[in-house]
Nucleic acid binder design. Structure first.
Lengths: 197, 197
DNA sequence: GTTAGCATGTAAGGAGTTACATGATTTT
DNA sequence: AAAATCATGTAACTCCTTACATGCTAAC
């Protein structure tokens, strides 16, 4: 039950889904994709690749005659996902472990929604929404209790936090609706033009 | 130059600034305050307290006759901040190390703005804004390059990310203005009532 | 020809978690 | 009297980073 360490693994499997890649490129794409928080270092990527190689989730591509690029290339090690890896990808995407709703893990799952089916997408979106809603309820109940004695900066931080999470919940709700009614609603909710065309 | 491990230390020093507390209560207040992301565990709090005790940043309070509470209390170990700790708090608050603008570290600094002076507040706010703006610029320049080939879910994630960071930047700008013109603007920007009373 | 970036790794360590262990106090 | 929660701690482990080490290739 690989609940820990799923983050990089899932990201690599998802990216390799788009085509074979070498480590350096994986890192670049990952940092572009999840650039918001941390920058993935080689010190964690390469060992992870080795481990996945041992687990036969990925394999080396020996010859890949990319059209247009000269073949005189030595040091690059290009990986591709195996059948086992594809199965593991699906398993990880649908797994609802305790860390699956954290920011980074959710973002990775969301980024690869195109490689899954609607059932899983809905489960992930609704799970995240439920989690955020729980946090919101917890904070707001505590907020009403301790309201009087809080310093104004701490209060402003809480206000801003609540507002951000509420916004996130609305975003998730829009996405869930869009999943359920694929025809009626475009993926992007009408922020700019509130009229139907 | 304790650049790492500053997070808990700063939080503890900031909280003890409000008055003496024991470990359990520190954890509760911290989780209330920064409840958004992780929950601080005892396994990291208590060792940190021990370390700070060794460094004389905090000290045990032997007798504290809290009015109204019976004194028959044994196992609680109440800490208070020392002079050295107060100095360290100021130092950490004004330090602009590479991790100071990360979400958690920024939130902690912000939460204790009431215990610092405006100079430091402005430096922290402006530093955070600069960092976010840099990320924004980097992502948007990359976004314009790779625009065509991106999957729609990955694109929506990026769009949402950019929007969130832009919102955060605006929030910071409002706060910076409020710091610079303390009379004119209330801390909270006029969301509900745009009129002056 | 030298700087910048591509490309792959290893070793040591940091910052925290989970799980375990223990006992007192309050509530039901 | 049992259950919940208060209260303090330790040991092992995980995931990741930083710093180091190496060499190739493109650009200036």
């Amino acid at each position: 039950m690989a609940r820990r360490g799923e983050t990089i693994e899932l990201a690599v499997l998802g990216l390799l889904h788009e085509g074979p890649m070498h480590g350096y490129e994986l890192r670049k794409r990952l940092n572009l994709m999840l650039g918001w928080s941390r920058v993935l270092s080689y010190g964690s990527l390469y060992p992870a690749l080795k481990k996945m190689l041992r687990g036969a989730l990925i394999e080396e591509v020996t010859t890949l005659p990319t059209p247009g690029v000269p073949v005189t290339r030595r040091p690059r090690i290009v990986y591709q996902v195996t059948e086992l890896g594809t199965a593991e990808f699906t398993r990880l995407m649908s797994e609802v472990g305790p860390t699956a709703w954290e920011d980074d893990n959710f973002d990775i799952r969301f980024a690869f929604f195109g490689s899954t089916d609607m059932e899983i997408r809905l489960r992930v979106l609704e799970g995240r929404r439920t989690r955020l809603q729980e946090r919101l309820d917890r904070v707001q109940s505590q907020l009403s209790m301790t309201q009087a004695e809080v310093d104004r900066y701490a209060a402003e931080l809480q206000r801003h936090g609540v507002e951000s999470v509420e916004r996130e919940v609305r975003w998730l709700s829009d996405l869930i609706n869009a999943e359920r009614n694929p025809e009626q609603v475009a993926l992007r909710p009408p922020t700019e033009q509130p009229q139907q065309q």
